[in-house]
Simulated scan of single mutants.
Amino acid sequence: MTIFFLLIGLELEREIYHGELSSIKKISKIAIQIASLLSGIFGFIYLKYILAQKKT
C-alpha cells in the first residue's frame, strides 16, 4: 500500500512539473486529484477503524 501511494505521488509530481498539469489554468485538475487521493487514504483508514470496532 505504501509503495502504491509513493508511486501515485511521484506520478503527480511528474505531471505537475512536466505533464498536463504544468499549466496554471489546470490547477483545478490538481485539486481534484489531490482531493481524490486524500479521500481514498482517509476512507480506507475510516473503514479499517469501523471494522476494528465491530470486532471488539
Score class of each variant (00 low, 15 high):
Leu47Arg: 10
Ile8Arg: 02
Ile3Gly: 09
Glu13Phe: 13
Leu38Gln: 05
Leu38Tyr: 05
Gln33Trp: 05
Gly43Tyr: 03
Ile3Ser: 15
Leu7Ala: 13
Glu15Asp: 13
His18Pro: 00
Ser36Met: 11
Ile30Phe: 06
Ala31Met: 09
Leu47Cys: 07
Leu6Ala: 14
Ser23Arg: 09
Ser28Asp: 11
Lys54Thr: 08
Lys54Arg: 15
Ile24Lys: 12
Leu6Lys: 13
Phe5Ser: 03
Phe44Ser: 12
Gly9Glu: 04
Ala31His: 08
Gln33Ile: 06
Gln33Thr: 06
Glu20Thr: 07
Lys29Gln: 11
Thr56Gln: 15
Ile34Asn: 01
Ile3Cys: 11
Ile34Pro: 01
Gln33Glu: 09
Ile32Pro: 02
Ile16His: 02
Leu21Ala: 02
Gly9Thr: 00
Tyr49Gly: 05
Ala35Asn: 05
Lys54Cys: 07
Phe5Asn: 03
Leu47Asp: 10
Ile16Lys: 04
Ala52Trp: 14
Phe44Asn: 06
Phe4Cys: 06
Ile45Ser: 02
Lys55Ala: 15
Ile8Lys: 04
Ser36Gly: 11
Phe42Pro: 00
Leu51Met: 12
Leu21His: 02
Ser23Asp: 13
Ile41Phe: 06
Gly19Thr: 00
Lys55Val: 14
Thr56Pro: 12
Met1His: 13
Leu10Met: 10
Leu51Asp: 14
Arg14Leu: 08
Lys25Asn: 09
Leu7Glu: 06
Lys55Ile: 14
